[in-house]
Structures are given as structure tokens and as C-alpha cells.
Amino acid sequence: MASETLKDLFIHSLSDVYSAEKQLTKALPKMARAATNANLKAIFESHLEETRGQILRIDQVVESCGIKLMRIKCAAMEGLVEESQELVDEIEKGAVLDAGLIGAAQKVEHYEIATYGTLAALAKKLGEKDAMKLLLETLEEEKAADLKLTKLADEEVTEEAAAA
């Protein structure tokens, strides 16, 4: 379906991020298993729970807007997940892989930050205040996850990787 109106674009973008979040619920446990740094494992496990909550929040957005999601697959997330799997396949377990996994996770977070920021702006323009609040809540979670990853990279993982 072609996006002809702002609402069409909103529905398409929301459907896309729903797919992205679903894909992430499958990727995060794999990333957690591949990580050797205990704090990185914990971040992945914690973000998995947040991601499940974000999916429920998308369901709330759908309900509050009275819309139906499209059945599409997010190609961007598919590529980002594939990149992280390539790291796991190509780099020996340890600090260097952990550093790579942080980078891969931050690519995901930045994609989600851009997506939820856009969705919140679209919801605002469409007069969907409840949806906008829900989307902004998710946006803040994604920003917080990105900051946690940056802090971990700065304080622990890159030092460990440099020493490896």
C-alpha cells in the first residue's frame, strides 16, 4: 500500500517499528549469550524486557488511534540483526566481540531513536496526543539504553578490548 496521507505514513512507520521490535526480541537473547561482560549481558537482558513493553505500548497506540497495523518486515532491523550475527560468527568470544556488540546495539538504538522521534512527531501532527505520549515514553527508553551502552563502552569494554 502506498502512503498517500500522513496517517498512511504513520501506520506504515508504526507497522515497520512493530516488526523491528519483534525481530529484536529474538536477537537480544543471542547477543546476551554472545557477550562475556556481565554488565553487557545485563543490559541486553534488561532491554529485552523493555522491548517487550514497547511492543505492548505499540498495541496501545494502535488501540488509541483506532488503526490496524500492516503485515510488513522491517528491512533495516533485519540488516542490523544480521550485522550483529556476523560479528558473533566472525569474532572470538571476549572483550573485542563485546565492543563490537555494543556498536551493533547502538546502531539499533539510533535507528529506534530516529523512528520513535518521527512517529511521535507524526502522532502530534495527527492530533493523536495519547499515542504521542506513548511514543515519547519509548523514545526516552531508547535514549537511556543508548547512554547505558556508551557508558559501558567508555568505562569498561573498550579498555578490556584494548588490553586483549
Score class of each variant (00 low, 15 high):
Ala2His: 01
Ser3Arg: 02
Thr5Ile: 05
Thr5Phe: 04
Thr5His: 06
Lys7Glu: 15
Lys7Arg: 15
Asp8Thr: 06
His12Asp: 14
His12Thr: 11
Ser13Ala: 14
Ser13Pro: 05
Leu14Phe: 09
Leu14His: 10
Ser15His: 10
Tyr18Ile: 03
Glu21Cys: 00
Glu21Arg: 02
Lys22Pro: 05
Gln23Gly: 14
Leu24Gly: 00
Leu24Pro: 06
Leu24His: 03
Leu24Asp: 00
Thr25Ala: 12
Lys26Tyr: 10
Ala27Cys: 02
Leu28Pro: 02
Leu28Trp: 00
Lys30His: 01
Met31Cys: 08
Arg33Ile: 02
Ala34Phe: 01
Asn39Met: 07
Leu40Gly: 01
Lys41Val: 10
Lys41Glu: 11
Ala42Ser: 15
Ser46Phe: 01
His47Trp: 03
Leu48Tyr: 13
Leu48Asp: 08
Thr51Cys: 09
Arg52Glu: 14
Arg52Phe: 01
Gly53Ser: 01
Gly53Trp: 04
Gln54Tyr: 06
Leu56Cys: 02
Ile67Val: 15
Ile67Ala: 12
Lys68Asp: 12
Met70Phe: 03
Lys73Pro: 02
Ala75Gly: 01
Ala76Asn: 03
Ala76Val: 11
Glu78Leu: 09
Leu80Thr: 04
Leu80Trp: 00
Val81Trp: 07
Val81Gly: 02
Val81Met: 05
Glu83Cys: 01
Gln85Gly: 00
Gln85Met: 10
Leu87Trp: 07
Asp89Leu: 03
Glu92Trp: 07
Gly94Met: 09
Gly94Leu: 07
Val96Cys: 08
Val96Lys: 13
Ala99Thr: 00
Ala99Leu: 14
Gly100Ser: 09
Ile102Pro: 13
Gln106Gly: 10
Lys107Trp: 02
Lys107Tyr: 04
Ile113Met: 11
Ile113Gly: 11
Ile113Cys: 04
Ala114Asn: 00
Thr115Gly: 02
Tyr116Trp: 05
Gly117His: 06
Ala120Val: 08
Leu122Glu: 15
Lys125Asp: 14
Lys125Ile: 01
Lys125Ser: 13
Leu126Cys: 04
Glu128Ala: 14
Glu128Gly: 04
Lys129Gln: 14
Asp130Tyr: 03
Ala131His: 07
Met132Cys: 13
Leu134Thr: 05
Leu135Cys: 09
Leu135Gly: 07
Leu136Gln: 11
Leu136Thr: 09
Thr138His: 13
Glu140Phe: 03
Glu141Phe: 06
Glu141Gln: 13
Ala144Asn: 11
Leu147Ala: 14
Lys148Asn: 12
Ala153His: 06
Ala153Ser: 14
Glu155Gly: 05
Glu156Asn: 12
Glu156Ala: 13
Thr158Phe: 11
Thr158Met: 11
Glu159His: 09
Ala162Pro: 02
Ala163Met: 10
Ala163Gln: 13
Ala164Ile: 05
